[in-house]
Design a protein around this nucleic acid. Sequence first.
RNA 1: AGCGGGGUGGGGAAGUCAGGUCAUCCCGGCGGGCUCAUAACCCGCAAAUCAGUAGUUCAAAUCUACUCCCCGCUACCA
Length: 551
Amino acid sequence: MNKKAIITSALPYANGEIHLGHVASTYLPADVTTRFLKLNGVEAYYVCASDDYGTPILLQSEKEGKTPAEYVSHWNKRDYEDFTAFNIEFDFFYKTSSPENIAFVQDVFQKLNDAGHIYEKEIIQFYCNNDKKFLPDRYVKGTCPDCKADDQYSDLCESCGRVPEEIINPKCSICGQPPTKEKTKHYFFKLKNFGDLLFKWLDEHEHLQKDVKKYVQNWIKSGLIDWDITRDISWGVPVPLDAAEGKVFYGWFDNHLAYISTAIKFLNDKGIDGKEFWNSADIYHFIGKDIVYHHYLFLPAMRLGINSEYKLPDYIPTRGHLTLQAKKISKSRNWYIGLKDFLKNYRADYLRYYLISINPYSQDDLNFDWNDFATRINSELIGNLGNFVNRALGFTKKTFDGIVPEIDTFDDKDTEAEQKIKSLATDVGLLLEQNHLDRALKKIMEFSSFFNQYFQHKEPWKKGPGTANCVFLSVNAARSMAIALFSFLPESAQQIWEQLGLSGKIDELTWSNMSELGIPSGHVLGTASPLFAKVEESDIEILKKQLGPSE
RNA sequence: AGCGGGGUGGGGAAGUCAGGUCAUCCCGGCGGGCUCAUAACCCGCAAAUCAGUAGUUCAAAUCUACUCCCCGCUACCA
């Protein structure tokens, strides 16, 4: 395992609140991974930033009578608060509109330009005389020439799925007026130059997901298109050329560069040589499958274009999208659940548990279902794990006055239990290293289930000769669970720790500590109380109506 | 339209890349046990020709071909 790592997750676009879909695919998996790496002694930093630029933000801020800067600063703050409430622990959360990023983006552009990867081209684009704006693809709607469906985007018909050659009856999607066509000069990035290199990079990179790789390679085979990287709007990183007055970079040119500029700023401020650290660390970019193109093509191509001055990513864990009650999440149709709203009803760990347990390491979509949520929390998290911890600690309190008893010779069952503890760090660790967070969590649940069985079979309440061993091992198992669980459910893990009467914070420990019998005979436990309250069916029914969308 | 991913007991999923050790896990149903624990937990039973057809193989949920359904992505979006 590399002893250094930089973890990033897709940048939240600063024009709306964080919802369950965002955290499920990106922020939560990245947070769990970072915590895991840190416990393993890796110098890992999790950095992120709000994505501040672009036309949608400009339009929305105008609508709300704010400057774009005020508008994005509001969302930057709010997003960070929501993440923090969910125990997503960034080492640094910054913004793409930072002076550091602007300078960095302009510098990268200069280097790409000097290396001959940029060219100018005059294009004809729709222009709205009413709004006084050039209208990029999505801002023009009309009738699809292929299937005649109305109200389709000029760059994609959602009805037949084709990319229209020329849309019929174009209309400005802001004001509805027909736009005119105007000439404008844009800058293009020669993505075509990088097809072979990208293909090879994908081929040779063992850590990249196979399913995604295949997908992207097919795209390369069918031919890459040079990429229009500028826009005629006022809100963005200015193109640093005299001839480019009034032009800014397209959001996807600048935003992923903030991974680098943000990390460097954070590291330099800490007194670490940021560039050197970046280039010697494992780089992780956690993303959702919708931005595969940007992270598997644009981003590596740009880094290759500046001679890999900053190394390419080692891992791009890509996950599917969350559906809500089996339907696509959509803010505009109000079919989504805001993170903040959710956390008003249930603590972070419930959601963390549920989202990880349904989230495989693949591009497959996953589904949030209220009843499934209730069932999993009640029967798995509470019935299995919460119950075990509570019965083990409660029993020790009741029978041994909270003092862990002296042990005798282990019988076969005891030895088996001891083995489970000893192999836990490896069993769970291997899965986490492979990014299988869901399976790793399941392993911990299996461990807990084993100990419920063990406890049952040993029947310590009958006060037979095996009682002391059973209590000793059960209490130690609870300790192991706390450490293993910490990356997933930090709050609950720490709670178990305190109930065990242990001092300090789990994040000061080492991963392998979980496989030690760390609680000696004679240790005095803390106060045991149930860790989790049940999810009530009646509440779920109410929430379904409230948070869930009304059609 | 192109590309990608799926169809596994009543419901939801894992297992498929590296074929046998596999039919597993959770919910639900039925029957028992226990009483330390949040009506929890433990043991057992019923229920699946692993979408269909053909093939490869000593051996297929797993590999190949075709067919039928479902879903997602297509360069704004986690």
